[in-house]
Amino acid sequence: MSKKYLSTTALSKEIQLPAKEVFKLLSESGLVIREEDNWNLTDKGKEKGGIVKSHPKFGAYIAWSVDFKDDSIFKTENLNPKLLTSTALGSHFGISKFRINPILSELGLIQKGVKGWLVTPLGKLMGGEQFEYDKTGIPYVCWNPGILSKKSIINSMKEIQGEASTEEKPENNQSNIGFREKFEAKLRTADGHYVRSRAEMLIDNWLYMSEIVHAFERKLPVEEDVYCDFYLPVGKVYIEFWGLENDEKYKERKQEKIKIYQKYGFNLIELNDDDIKNLDDVLPKKLLKFGIQAY
């Protein structure tokens, strides 16, 4: 029975490390050497079971015995730190490898490139690092293990899978009651959302009738406890309606929220009472700035 071999890229998938990190480990261990634009196998690499094979399309490449994936150079203690592929991240949260990148995209951590995935500014803050496959140049993102302990990520993954959030509920006393608890969502919109004001109902109905997918009061995927009024997955756009402008506490809350939107570079559309009277004129123009066509 012929011995099975793995290309270095296939090996990286087996051990759930970026191919770039695998080549770095192989190079530091003296198993491969970089010469011009190619990786070449060393004598020490041959002793470890490495061979050179040929592909009709990609040419010569280095392959490794399948049991090489258990070699000591890939042990966790030798990695600083061990970055997680999207597949490893999905495995941790019990999410299919086919769903994890679209979920990370919906959270605003990555975005689709012409091919592959690109890390966003928010993704970088969450520990994302950009890589690309040597052979194809297709980009992909890996993650610092610290992302596994981010409360915002944990809660988002739980919600997506229909599990209870770990967020603490506010105590039932007047000093801790916030805007969302004070103004109960009683108004039912055309698509079944329950909102807190007539203005929110008009915005929700406008989006629904314009066939724009949207979420109401979605928590921002950050560590701060902040909820938007509306979120549009297409374009990763947040919409805030600013009412109660005469209320000092509300104005303070508004400024705090704006600072958070600016901190993470989120796409934000702001609406006021005058805009509500002219949604057909105002919203299409504001949406178009983020590449969303309403009609």
Rank of each mutant, 00 (worst) to 15 (best):
K186E: 03
N272L: 00
N144I: 03
E245C: 10
Q130V: 13
R218T: 02
M209K: 15
G50K: 02
K150G: 02
I260D: 05
N40L: 15
L207Q: 03
G128R: 06
L283G: 02
K289M: 07
E200V: 07
I62R: 14
E224D: 10
E28A: 15
T42A: 05
F179W: 12
K182S: 13
V32H: 05
D229T: 03
V222D: 04
F131S: 01
S210N: 15
L89G: 07
E171K: 15
A215H: 10
H193E: 08
L41F: 11
Q161F: 10
T87K: 15
E217N: 03
Q174T: 08
S2N: 15
M201D: 03
K112L: 00
S2T: 06
P145Q: 11
L187F: 15
Y140W: 07
A199C: 08
D273S: 15
M157Y: 12
T120P: 00
G146K: 15
D225I: 11
K249E: 06
E35V: 11
F98Q: 10
G162R: 14
I110S: 08
G162Y: 08
G291P: 01
E106S: 14
M201Y: 01
A185S: 07
V234P: 00
G243L: 07
N172Q: 10
S175A: 12
S86Y: 05
R188D: 06
E240I: 02
R218C: 01
Q130A: 11
G49I: 06
I203T: 04
Q16M: 09
S152L: 04
